[in-house]
Amino acid sequence: MSALKWGQGKGKGAAGPALFSLPLSFDHFVLPRVLRRPVRILARLGEGEFQAPRFSAAIMSAVLIASSGAYGAYLGGHADGIVQSITARTGFAVDQVKVVGNRQTSEIDILDRLELDGWTSLIGFDAEAARERIATLPWIEVAAVRKVYPHTLEVRVEERQAFALWQQGSDLSVIEKDGAVIAPFSGGKQVLLPLLIGAGAPAKAPEFLAKIEKYPDLATRIRGYVRVGDRRWDLKLDNGITVKLPEDGEDQALAELVGMDHDKGLLSRDIAAVDMRLSDRLVVQLTPEAATQREAALNEKPKMLKRKPETKI
């Protein structure tokens, strides 16, 4: 108890305990339990009675060096790298990546945005930053990156929906239904998308293509939808015929076109264009070959009439 209760059992004028020659005696005062041992050791150290354990100097030096290195790494911005390196070598290195939902976006592009270096630790990996990088890819609409411990990353993406191809001059792009450009045309299955040509075509295309869908036989033959002056449409068919639709009354013109093709095979003839811009008439333009043949036939007709023998009565 003499080590805990200072001043007890001491006579008047007796010297109390001291720390580094400073008196620590207080009448009837007891230190809290948690402080007793540290204060006792400090008192012995001040009186020269305490002997440090073996290798304590080496341990303290190592602690000092380690703490200095950690502090320096923190100030230099290298703390994350140290954490990454240590945790990666203790079984948390990313060695598997699962990518789900990509169709137009290659896995290579997604892996490139993850910025893995072979020793990336799952613990220190910034999933949100990786998600933001993946979201910048042209086809990606929504992206999510999830850590699956101990060493797997799971990437789920939702891609934008392609509606058509849009040609402006020599540029050919894949667009969404609202006209937003997704990415340049890269081939493959994208070639099956409707081809829109001309300024203003993307804005008017959804409504117009919905009308065309009512006539499947005609729709399968159309290779291009040309917006003319942002006022009306020309249809480019697979056999080279151009159908010039009017500004107003598109529905009626399409119905008449399909009817004439069904009844008279209009779109299978040797013609270059069908002009329906005038409401009271339909103009058919022959191909150069057909026009030459027609002209030759018309020139031959008078000769045939002259050769016809006279009939005797």
Rank of each mutant, 00 (worst) to 15 (best):
A58I: 06
A58P: 02
A58C: 05
I59Y: 05
M60Y: 13
S61I: 12
S61F: 12
A62M: 03
L64F: 13
L64Y: 04
I65R: 01
A66N: 08
S68Y: 04
G69F: 15
A70W: 13
Y74T: 00
G77H: 10
G77L: 11
G77E: 06
G77D: 12
H78Q: 13
A79R: 04
A79N: 04
D80F: 01
G81Q: 09
G81R: 01
I82C: 01
Q84W: 00
I86Q: 06
T87K: 02
T87V: 01
T90N: 05
T90D: 03
G91L: 03
F92T: 10
F92L: 15
V94A: 09
D95A: 06
V97S: 10
V97T: 11
K98V: 14
V100N: 13
V100E: 14
G101K: 14
G101A: 13
N102C: 12
T105E: 09
S106Y: 07
I108R: 15
I110L: 14
I110M: 12
I110G: 12
L111Q: 15
R113Y: 03
R113G: 00
R113M: 15
R113C: 14
E115C: 01
E115G: 00
L116C: 12
L116Q: 14
L116P: 11
L116D: 01
L116M: 13
D117G: 08
W119H: 05
W119T: 06
S121A: 05
S121G: 07
L122H: 04
I123Q: 07
I123D: 01
F125A: 12
A127H: 02
A127D: 10
E128S: 04
E128K: 06
A129T: 07
A130Q: 06
A130P: 05
R131D: 12
T136K: 08
L137A: 09
P138I: 15
P138Q: 15
P138A: 15
W139L: 05
W139K: 09
W139A: 12
E141S: 08
V142A: 11
V142G: 00
A143T: 14
A144F: 08
R146S: 09
R146D: 03
K147H: 03
Y149G: 00
Y149F: 15
P150Q: 04
H151Q: 10
L153P: 03
E154M: 14
E158L: 07
E158F: 00
E159F: 10
E159P: 12
Q161S: 11
F163D: 08
F163Q: 01
F163N: 00
L165S: 07
L165D: 09
W166Y: 10
Q167T: 00
Q168L: 08
G169I: 08
G169M: 07
G169L: 05
S170Y: 08
